[in-house]
Design a protein around this nucleic acid. Structure first.
Lengths: 226, 226
DNA sequence: TTAATTTGTAACAAAATTGTAACATTTAAG
DNA sequence: CTTAAATGTTACAATTTTGTTACAAATTAA
C-alpha cells in the first residue's frame, strides 16, 4: 500500500489512532485540527485521499468539500467524510457536495481501511496493492486469483468471497450469522447450513495434498482460519 | 503515447507544427502565445509536460518557470525549454531555474519527440508508451495496429479500444461496468450483455490457432487478460 | 448514392454455480 | 455406551451467468 492521506479532524485522539494505523499500513499521513489550516496544508501535501470530519471548529466538512471541488488541482481528490452518530439524516446532502464515501463514528479501523481502499481503487488504482496473505496462502483481489505457495487455486465466486472474508481477520472465529451477513449480498435468505456446504467446498479447493488444513471448525461457534 | 502537453510559444508556425505532430502521436495538446495567458491556462489544462519558449513578449521563460516551481500543484511538472541559437551561453542559468531539458531552435520534430519521451519517461512512465505489449501481443497506439508475434490482427474500432483498455492493466479483472465506463464514450447506454458479445468478437480475432487463450472470464466479476 | 463494415440486442445454448435435502459421521454430555 | 446435537459429505435440480449466433440498425467507406 502506498499513497498520501490527509486528515482534517478536530479530535486529537481520532487523528492519533487513525494516523498511526494508516502509517503502519504504508500510507504517508498528515493532518490538521481545523478547516482553515487544513485547506492550506492540503495544497502542500498533495494527498491521494482526504479524510474529513463533518463537524469542525471553523468550517464545516461540507464547506471544505465544496471549496476543494472548486479548485481545479483538487477536482478529483477523493474524500471520505466522518460523521458522528445522529447526523445520518444529512447523508444525502453530503453526498451531493461531492463526498465519495461516509463513515459514522465510532468506526473500526478495519472498516475505515476497507472504505479507503475501495475509494482509492476507483480513483488511483496504483496506490492500492491488494493482496491478502496468510501462511502460504495468497489472495489477489485485483486479479481475483488465489495461490497456495505458487500453485494456483481455482475458486468459484462465493468461495472466493468467503476466503477473502476470512483473510481480512484470519484466526478470528466467525459465527454463521456473521459470515452470512458479510459474504452474502444483503437481504438474502439462506439457511445457515448452506454455509457448511460452502465451507466444505472451500476446504476441498484450498486443502492441497501435503498441506495442512487451513479452515478450523469451532464447534457451536463457527469457523476461522488457523 | 498519451498524456497532455502544454506549449507556451509566441511563434504561431512553431506551435502549429509541434502541436499537429504531437497530436498525431497521441498527445493532447493545448497552447498559449504569451506567458501570462499561459500561466492561467496551465491551471485548467493540467498538463504532464510543458514546452516553454525562452523569449516571450511578456514574461521570460525563466520567470514562468520560477513561477511554476513556486506553485505546489506544479512542483514536478517537467519543462522543456526552447531557445533560439545564440542563447546557448545562458543554458546553465536555465537549468538552475528548474528546467528539465533544452532544445535549440531550429530543431527537428524527431529530436523534440526524443526529448519529450525521455523526460516523460522519468516523470510519468505511463504517458510514454507508443505500444502496449503483453505476452506475444503488441498493440501500436499510433498506427492503430495489433500483432500477435508477427502476424497482424485486424480489429474493429471497438475491439481495438477494448484490447487497448485491457493492455494498460493486463491481468487486472474489470467488471462490465468498469469496461463500459472506460471503453465506451461517456453517457452512452448499452446493455452490459453487449460487452460479452464484443469480448467474443475480440477473442475470435485475437485467438489465432495454436495460441493460448488470452482473455480470461472471471465468473460474476468480469474479464481480464491472462 | 450504394455497398461494406460495424454495432447493439435478442434469443437460444452451454456451462458453471448455488441452495437444499438427505444421509453419514463426529462430538460432547449424561 | 447411548443419545442428541452439530457438522461433514454427497447428489441433484434450479438458477445464474456466460457463450454463440443471427439479424436489423447505424455508421462508414467507396
Amino acid at each position: 500500500m502506498n499513497g498520501k492521506i490527509f486528515i482534517i479532524e478536530d479530535e486529537p485522539s481520532i487523528i492519533q489512532l487513525v494516523q498511526h494505523n494508516l502509517e503502519k499500513n504504508g500510507f504517508i499521513v498528515s493532518s490538521s485540527l481545523n478547516g482553515n489550516d487544513g485547506l492550506k496544508e492540503l495544497k502542500k501535501f498533495q494527498p491521494d485521499l482526504l479524510l474529513l470530519d463533518w463537524m469542525l471548529p471553523d468550517l464545516s466538512g461540507i464547506e471544505i468539500c465544496k471549496n476543494i471541488r472548486k479548485d481545479n488541482s483538487f477536482k478529483n481528490l477523493p474524500v471520505i467524510m466522518l460523521t458522528a452518530k445522529g447526523e445520518e439524516e444529512d447523508k444525502i446532502k453530503g453526498l451531493d457536495s461531492g463526498v465519495d464515501d461516509y463513515l459514522t463514528k465510532p468506526f473500526s479501523f478495519n472498516e475505515l481501511m476497507a472504505r479507503i481502499k475501495a475509494v482509492l481503487r476507483r480513483s488511483n488504482p496504483n496506490t492500492v496493492s491488494d493482496n491478502l496473505k496468510f501462511d502460504d496462502l495468497m489472495l489477489d483481489r485485483i486479479e481475483k486469483r488465489v495461490f497456495r505457495d505458487d500453485q494456483e487455486i481455482k475458486l468459484g465466486p462465493t468461495e472466493f468471497r468467503l476466503l477473502e472474508f476470512f483473510l481480512i481477520n484470519p484466526k478470528r472465529v466467525y459465527s454463521r450469522d456473521q459470515i452470512l451477513e458479510s459474504v452474502w449480498p444483503n437481504n438474502i435468505n439462506i439457511e445457515s447450513r448452506t454455509i457448511d456446504v460452502h465451507i466444505r467446498r472451500l476446504r476441498q479447493s484450498v486443502n492441497l495434498k501435503n498441506k495442512k488444513e487451513l479452515i478450523r471448525t469451532v464447534r457451536s461457534s463457527g469457523y476461522s482460519l488457523i
